[in-house]
């Protein structure tokens, strides 16, 4: 559209230009105040010195980043060693978010496929049903999940009553509980883009593949998945990115041992015990990581789109 307007006659180009400047204003204002400004603020804070009761002292310092990567002992006078605590938390975050994304894909893809293959009239109803639980606040949903999964919760009661297990499964306070929580929090973000892609899929392609002696698994792998790849990639980004920075699910379902980067950052800004520059530095590191991962995905996406 924009290209069409720009390549129009020279007499109208100026009018368009002016109109475009004004029409884009709200978007620019929103972008600069709600995204650019907070990020810049974080960037600045991450290079300041911490105040002991929260807040910052306006004095340049690299200590926040230093603290993230290096251990200099309790009083900061020992030789620097690599600090593994935060790197481990970081690594766990990537891993947990990745596992949650995989889980969402494994459940979300068949769900999306199911909805897309329903008669056209009932598809909106299925989409609506998928989104209903998400009208409830995330905190309440996560707490409910903890209640469902705990040792004396309904899930374990049910499994014990059926005789499948003798003693309750310890699900809460494990990595798996966090993955479940993240999966449940962001599942629709996986289902919806894949649904949109499968809905546009030309099912004759599956017939053509079957006609050419492909099995169902081969059709899925060689024909359907490549065709809906852009939707899958979009779904993965939409689940992975918020999962990375999430703190509700890890806090409530993971317990102290299964700390994720989101919780670490949250801690730094909560109450008096916090360390604002450190929290800001961790945020910047998270942002950088996410951007790198997004860039890789975006490249894949562009490639997938060029191919179709």
């Amino acid at each position: 559209m924009a290209a069409g307007a720009a390549s129009g006659g020279s007499a109208t180009t100026d009018t368009y230009k002016e109109a475009r400047t004004w029409l884009l204003m709200p978007a620019w204002v929103t972008l600069s105040f709600l995204i650019l400004a907070p990020v810049l603020l974080m960037l600045v804070y991450s290079f300041l010195t911490k105040e002991f009761r929260g807040g910052v002292v306006w004095e340049f310092s690299l200590s926040a980043y230093d603290q993230f990567f290096f251990d200099r002992g309790l009083f900061g006078d020992e030789p620097a060693k690599i600090e593994w605590t935060y790197i481990t938390i970081f690594w766990r975050s990537i891993w947990q978010a990745g596992a949650a994304t995989l889980l969402s894909f494994l459940i979300g893809f068949p769900t999306a496929y199911f909805i897309a293959t329903q008669p056209e009239r009932v598809r909106p109803m299925w989409v609506f049903l998928i989104t209903i639980p998400y009208w409830v606040n995330l905190l309440i949903r996560t707490v409910s999940m903890k209640f469902l999964l705990r040792d004396q919760g309904p899930l374990n009661d049910f499994l014990i009553s059926t005789g499948l297990i003798d003693s309750p499964l310890h699900i809460v306070n494990t990595n798996f509980a966090v993955q479940l929580g993240l999966f449940y929090s962001y599942l629709p973000f996986m289902v919806l883009p894949i649904y949109a892609a499968v809905e546009r899929y030309n099912f004759t392609l599956s017939e053509a593949a079957a006609d050419l002696y492909a099995t169902k698994m081969t059709i899925l792998r060689r024909v359907l998945l490549p065709a809906v790849k852009p939707g899958v990639i979009a779904g993965c980004i939409l689940v992975f990115v918020p999962s990375m920075g999430s703190f509700l699910a890890p806090d409530l379902l993971g317990g102290a041992k299964n700390f994720m980067i989101g919780s670490l950052i949250e801690e730094q800004f909560k109450g008096n015990a916090g360390n604002w520059p450190f929290g800001a530095a961790a945020s910047m590191i998270l942002l950088t990581m996410v951007l790198i991962i997004l860039l890789i995905f975006a490249r894949q996406q562009a490639k997938a789109e060029k191919e179709t």
Binding site: T204, E207, A208, A209, P226, K229, E307, T308
Partner: peptide, 11 residues
């Protein structure tokens, strides 16, 4: 089968 709209695999 040769399909009406060919159904060639686009990728």
């Amino acid at each position: 089968t040769v399909f009406q709209n060919y159904a060639l695999f686009p990728h």
